Simulated scan of single mutants.
Amino acid sequence: MTDIAKNVYNIETVILDDTHSELIILDQTLLPAETVFLKLKTQEEIWEAIYKLRVRGAPAIGIAAAYGIYLGAKASKATDYDGFYSEIIKLKEYLASSRPTAVNLFWALDRMDECVKRNKEKTVNDIKFDLLKESQNIKQEDIWVCRSIGEYGLTLLKPGMGILTHCNAGQLATSKYGTALAPIYVGHEKGYNLKVFADETRPLLQGARLTAYELNKAGVDVTLICDNMASAVMKNGWVQAVFVGCDRVAANGDTANKIGTSGVAILAKNYNIPFYVCAPTSTIDLSCASGKDICIEERKPEEVTEMWYEKRMAPKDIKVFNPAFDVTDEKFITGIITEYGIVKAPYSESLKEIFKRKRGTVQW
């Protein structure tokens, strides 16, 4: 592995500075032009960072939210459990309002909530320490999860294959390795010489700004393409598999991911290219029956009309539809890669089996 690759692998997007009671994040809205770490002290700053995608990627959002709960708890002046827990619930609801689609956000907040409730007989100060440990565990577990997804995903690949990916589900979106990019990074370590095509991912360009950036820095063979070029590279025979991340998996296998993912899945089906979703079990929501039940975040029209241009590139007052995510129907998904193995249709059964395996497995 090159020194550059080691540097990429050592990037931490979410860091807790407990000494100064700060959450430190890499501001991903400024990449690749600037590498800026923000020091967030208030809950309002953490909420804004999640909403504005300064920290992004389902696992990284969950880690940031967990640290946010801890820092809020640490600042609490409450001396009794009821008063303390009341503050935690308000903080949980506030951070949960930042983004509606990524289930990791709610999963991490629920874990912190459960940590408080199961330790209610302890002193408030002891519960604060337990919350610190829980938030740190969430981050450390994510490293194990991503590496495991990478190992399982690599079993589906052969050296020299062409891979297409959409949005950014790599090192920058997690604690390490990423989800969709984890098989690529593990393959790179083992000399697979994979060739990656990264969709630019309009309108926020996470593929152009982030995926292309981190893979290039790691020494991976990566080619940036516009979203509407995916069909061309597939038809040319340059792509043998598609790997994407996700923000929520429904019980039937429908998957919400960055807008444009469903179109890639349909193209892959047309060209008989396997389409894999890399999903930590924390993103699987068995209480959500299908993709129809997933709340899709809609964002400001300026992201489409003017955000990346020197001058506005659309007529004034034009109507804009700007959903942040779309849902890929399970029939287009070849397999879902989790930290406990790869599942295939029928997902309504196989996803339940993964959770049975999870309950019987010792983690990291």
Rank of each mutant, 00 (worst) to 15 (best):
Ala5Cys: 10
Val8Ala: 10
Ile15Cys: 03
Leu16Tyr: 06
Asp18Ile: 12
Ser21Thr: 09
Glu22Cys: 11
Leu26Trp: 11
Asp27Glu: 09
Thr29Ser: 07
Leu30Ala: 02
Leu31Met: 13
Leu38Val: 01
Glu48Met: 04
Arg54Gly: 09
Ala65Arg: 09
Tyr67Phe: 09
Leu71Cys: 08
Ala75Lys: 02
Ala78Tyr: 00
Lys90Ile: 12
Met112Phe: 03
Asp113Tyr: 14
Arg118His: 11
Lys120Cys: 06
Lys122Gln: 12
Leu131Met: 02
Leu131Trp: 12
Ser135Ala: 14
Ser135Tyr: 07
Ile138Gly: 12
Cys146Arg: 11
Ile149Pro: 00
Gly153Ala: 06
Leu156Met: 15
Leu156Trp: 15
Pro159His: 14
Thr165Ile: 11
His166Phe: 14
Gln171Phe: 01
Leu172Ser: 07
Thr174Ser: 15
Ser175Gln: 07
Ala182Val: 06
Pro183Glu: 04
Tyr185Asp: 00
Tyr185Ala: 01
Lys195Val: 00
Ala198Gly: 05
Pro203His: 08
Arg209Glu: 02
Ala212Trp: 06
Ala212Gln: 10
Gly219Thr: 12
Thr223Lys: 08
Lys235Met: 13
Gly237Pro: 13
Gly237Met: 10
Val239Ser: 11
Val242Met: 13
Gly245Trp: 07
Ala251His: 03
Lys258Cys: 01
Gly260Met: 06
Lys269Asn: 13
Asn270Gly: 05
Cys278Lys: 03
Thr281Trp: 11
Ser282Trp: 01
Lys292Val: 15
Glu298Pro: 00
Glu298Lys: 07
Val304Thr: 07
Tyr309Val: 01
Met313Thr: 10
Ile318His: 05
Asp326Asn: 13
Thr334Ile: 07
Thr338His: 04
Gly341Ile: 01
Gly341Gln: 02
Pro346Thr: 10
Glu353Met: 05
Arg359Val: 12
Thr361Met: 07
Val362Gln: 07
